[in-house]
């Protein structure tokens, strides 16, 4: 499958009072054309930072990409583009939607203004053509009476409606890649399912690849083909969805899955402890403080990211030792 986006060895640092600390590292992944690719992990694991790095929207300072490549359409390294070149891609070939639909739209502008703005940046259409394009996309994202909605202000719409508008804005210029950072987290369950369904349809219609970021394995199961599991700024496991759910390797992934199943049983399981903060990152494996299978070596040396099965990578000493023994 042809890749639309390849991230190679991405590393993000944060500057804190004279000190430079690492927040995200060793990110390697490849998103294929028309693929829905998931990144899953608890809150604070660096998913949003990774996606903002793709968009070139990291708040710098204090954040900065210190290493790696982000290759788009097999030719351009997004990290090497000038701000102006990046702006041409943003909202055009790569677009993004965010978690909080309630605060993601400018309260002082009408929906129409906010849709048109995108077209003004990226097309040379006449005003009439722009308006027609807006009406069309609003209809496409499943909002009735588009003309009327366009005249309204964000506060007049419900959360689900606003997220549809956000999607409409993102799809306006027919992007090659849509990054969705927790697009349904703030919505209630029925709306959540509708929005995910809509995104899948749009993927088919527009042939857009989607990077689906979530902390919810349910969302992954529903939409994705491939998935990367992130923990404390690193990808710890990466494979196709079926393998992930049926043959998980990494202890962290197993923990996540267990807490998901626990959803339906009485005893709700959750991985003990919290994601370590940037200042207190363990030296060896970053999961060592919470891992039920931790060994001596885990605390000292970080494991390598290895291909443990076909199309299945995992970053854990259990498999590294196993493979070493095989050789």
């Amino acid at each position: 499958m042809e890749p639309i986006l390849q991230i190679k060895d991405l590393q993000i640092d944060v500057k804190m009072d004279e000190e430079v600390l690492n927040v995200v590292k060793n990110i390697n992944l490849e998103i294929g054309k028309r693929e829905i690719y998931g990144i899953v992990g608890e809150s604070g694991s660096g998913k949003s930072l990774t996606s903002l790095a793709i968009m070139g929207l990291l708040a710098s300072p204090p954040l900065q990409v210190s290493k790696g490549e982000i290759v788009f359409e097999e030719e351009k390294d997004l990290l090497k583009l000038s701000p102006k070149e990046l702006r041409k891609i943003r909202g055009n070939k790569i677009s993004m939607i965010f978690q909080e639909p309630m605060s993601a739209l400018d309260p002082l502008f009408t929906i129409e203004d906010q849709l048109m703005e995108s077209l003004k940046f990226h097309t040379k259409l006449s005003k009439k053509e722009m308006k027609r394009a807006c009406v069309k996309i609003i209809e496409r994202v499943g909002i009735p009476r588009p003309e009327q909605i366009m005249k309204e202000y964000p506060h007049q719409l419900s959360g689900g409606m606003r997220q549809r508008i956000m999607i409409a804005i993102a799809m306006l210029c027919n992007p090659k890649l849509l990054i969705a950072d927790e697009p349904t987290t703030a919505l209630d369950v029925t709306i959540q399912a509708q929005i995910l369904e809509l995104m899948k349809e749009l993927r088919d219609d527009f042939e857009t690849s989607i990077l689906m970021i979530t902390h919810d394995l349910g969302v992954i199961a529903e939409t994705c083909q491939r998935v990367a599991v992130m923990y404390a700024g690193e990808i710890v496991e990466e494979t196709d969805v079926v393998s992930l759910f049926h043959r998980p390797k990494h202890p962290y992934t197993k923990g996540l899955l267990k807490s998901m199943v626990g959803d339906r049983s009485d005893a709700l399981y959750s991985i003990p402890g919290k994601v370590p903060s940037v200042e207190q990152m363990p030296t060896g494996c970053r999961f060592v403080t919470r891992c039920p299978e931790a060994m001596d070596i885990c605390a000292r040396v970080s494991p390598d990211d290895l291909e443990v099965a076909e199309n299945h990578r995992c970053k854990c000493w259990i498999y590294q030792e196993e493979m070493a023994n095989h050789v």
Partner: peptide, 26 residues
């Protein structure tokens, strides 16, 4: 600091537009 500023940047707006059309008005 608000979320919607990020949305506007994600649309491909220049800093000039972010500041004068949106931040200043708000």
């Amino acid at each position: 600091r608000q979320d919607f500023i990020r949305t506007i940047r994600a649309k491909g707006a220049s800093e000039r537009i972010v500041i004068f059309n949106h931040a200043l008005k708000n």
